[in-house]
């Protein structure tokens, strides 16, 4: 995709200062390209370090290939960059360690995250991968809010949690995967028990 045809994240033009700003180009794993302001990139620790390390000039940004983000699709990346543009220049919050965490979801973020759970899931993965602290906070808060007023049985369905039996079975399976002989030993033991043997040996 050429730079001219790249979908640009909606930016409030009036809000852009007159001085020339650098816009980096990123490409999702489904080859969608995005132009993102330098200030917006600062919300992502991962991307910020990446562009710093690359040391691109304004010309490099235009002439070199877009920076590929291999494991995030275009739909998710668009949300990520919309969020970064809206929150550019804002301080990155520092975790004060308090639990339960108090996180307010701003109106813009709430609208942005008015998406299906599949996309929300991808958005959280992207926020985690790109290390966007506040986006991770608000998106995780949205997931936490799903638990409000739910009983344990309802939570199992909301979060697709395994039942006690499934949880135990998964643990056993994991143990067996580590020690394939365990199942054989157990079966052998059961067989000997059926045959009435008193001792394993």
């Amino acid at each position: 995709m050429s730079v001219e045809n790249a979908p640009v994240v909606d930016v409030d033009e009036a809000a852009i200062p007159v001085e020339k700003k650098m816009y980096y180009r990123f490409e999702s794993n489904d080859k969608k390209e995005f132009r993102v302001s330098e200030l917006a990139i600062q919300q992502s620790e991962t991307l910020n370090r990446l562009v710093e390390a690359m040391g691109y000039t304004s010309e490099d940004v235009e002439n070199k290939p877009a920076i590929a983000i291999e494991n995030i699709d275009g739909k998710t990346l668009k949300l990520v960059f919309q969020w970064c543009e809206h929150h550019k220049g804002e301080a990155i919050p520092v975790d004060d360690g308090s639990v339960p965490k108090i996180v307010e979801i701003p109106e813009f973020d709430a609208k942005l995250m008015d998406i299906d759970n599949g996309l929300l899931f991808k958005l959280i993965w992207a926020a985690d991968y790109l290390n966007i602290v506040q986006l991770l906070n608000v998106s995780c808060k949205k997931v936490a809010n799903m638990a409000q007023g739910k009983t344990p049985a309802q939570l199992r369905r909301v979060y697709l949690l395994p039942s006690d039996e499934e949880d135990e079975a998964a643990k056993r399976a994991a143990q067996e995967a580590q020690d394939p002989r365990a199942r054989e030993v157990e079966e052998e033991f059961e067989e000997r028990k059926r045959q009435g043997g008193n001792s394993f040996f």
Binding site: L120, F121, S139, V143, R157, Y159
Partner: peptide, 17 residues
């Protein structure tokens, strides 16, 4: 409702949730 696969989240995100 569409179920949310909580346990498939990365560890840090699960912690935040």
């Amino acid at each position: 409702f569409e179920a949310f696969r909580l346990m498939n989240l990365p560890y840090l995100a699960l912690e935040q949730v």
